[in-house]
């Protein structure tokens, strides 16, 4: 049981992790991330990398939708922009990995600002639909600007290499993808310790009164769009190195819905929500696969049923969380924390 935490300076109170148990848990978590690749087989390492990529993308969307209140159903298109930028730079310019990745993020951010412009005029659902429209238009561009994008066949990306070391196995890729994800998440958490993050939340909660406090709405809305797209672009760039091919069909509308579902399930407006949601939603289909394999002796065509069952469960998770746990997994995690804080005096 924790009664209270004494702090001696404002700096300590403004820290990211304010209690001892928080720091301990974080240390354990980071140690687990380091130990993970030595314990997992190739298949689970593949999933771990995919989870990390999705965490980056979902965290970006969470900044835009969860914290700033601007709903985007076009997030996958920004991932695609990042992926194409990386693939193009890698194959045409041959520039180093890190520059390509940052360029992917920046180009996506530029597109984000462009797509965010309607947010000046429209809000809520109208904006969500404008982002769908933008993603369809981008999809068209990916197919038809084939000089850059390689048209319908897309671009093949050579294996990632850093300082001449080729990183083609999941084990090696993990050591690139996971640290980048960690930095991106930390950056997002830092953002909300400063005036910029606060301004985003202010815009979400009451955008008119935000203006009176000296927050220029358009600039901050566009900033949120560009940050979210930067995250998506980085995630898309990692995706390109991970799957080694980028085509117009790599990032369908369904991916945008998946990411939005991830932050709904995880918890909008909480950094941990983006993480938990992306982990959960990426792994849930795999768990279903094990479930279906397990019941396959009883159900004759279980294998064929897997895809529709996944579709149903995906929808049911969105509906279920929105109705029964609108704050998402983040709230469940909070509840567990509160329980243990009073443990064993309250049961």
């Amino acid at each position: 049981m924790i009664i209270g935490t004494a702090k001696e300076s404002y700096r300590a109170d403004e820290a990211l992790l304010t209690t001892q148990p928080q720091r301990v848990w974080m240390a354990i978590f980071l140690a687990a991330l380091v130990a993970l690749p030595f314990a997992l087989n190739d298949y689970w390492l593949y999933l771990a990398c995919l989870v990390a990529i999705n965490v980056t993308a979902a965290t970006g969307l969470n900044i835009l939708t969860g914290f700033t209140g601007l709903v985007s159903l076009g997030h996958a298109a920004f991932m695609a922009v990042g992926a194409y930028t990386v693939a193009w730079a890698e194959t045409r310019l041959g520039t180093p990995f890190f520059i390509n990745l940052i360029a992917g993020g920046l180009v996506a951010a530029a597109f984000g600002i462009l797509v965010g412009l309607p947010s000046l005029r429209v809000k809520g659902l109208y904006l969500a639909i404008a982002t769908i429209a933008a993603s369809f238009i981008l999809h068209f561009c990916f197919i038809h600007f084939d000089g850059i994008t390689g048209g319908a066949t897309g671009i093949n990306v050579p294996p990632l290499s850093i300082f001449g070391i080729e990183l083609a196995t999941y084990f090696r890729l993990y050591w690139v993808i996971m640290p980048i994800t960690a930095v991106m998440v930390l950056g997002a958490a830092n953002l909300f310790r400063t005036r910029i993050g606060r301004a985003f939340i202010a815009i979400r909660d009451r955008d008119i009164s935000a203006e009176v406090l000296g927050i220029p709405l358009l600039r901050y809305k566009l900033m949120s769009f560009s940050i979210a797209s930067f995250y998506a672009g980085m995630a898309g760039g990692l995706w390109a190195y991970f799957f080694r091919v980028v085509t117009p069909e790599s990032f369908p509308l369904l991916t945008s819905i998946f990411l939005l579902a991830a932050i709904i399930v995880g918890g909008m407006g909480a950094i941990i929500g983006g993480i938990a949601g992306a982990i959960f939603m990426t792994l849930a289909p795999e768990l279903l696969r094990f479930g279906m394999e397990w019941i396959s002796p009883l159900v004759p065509n279980a294998g064929a049923l897997l895809s529709p069952v996944r579709t149903v469960v995906f929808g049911a998770l969105i509906v279920g969380f929105l109705i029964f746990e609108p704050q998402g997994l983040a709230e469940i995690i909070q509840r567990i924390r509160r329980y243990f804080r009073l443990w064993p005096f309250r049961t």
Partner: peptide, 14 residues
């Protein structure tokens, strides 16, 4: 807000 100067990059790395 209006009197502060932190920019995006500084915010990202705190």
């Amino acid at each position: 807000h209006g009197h502060m100067k932190t920019n995006l990059l500084q915010a990202f790395f705190y």
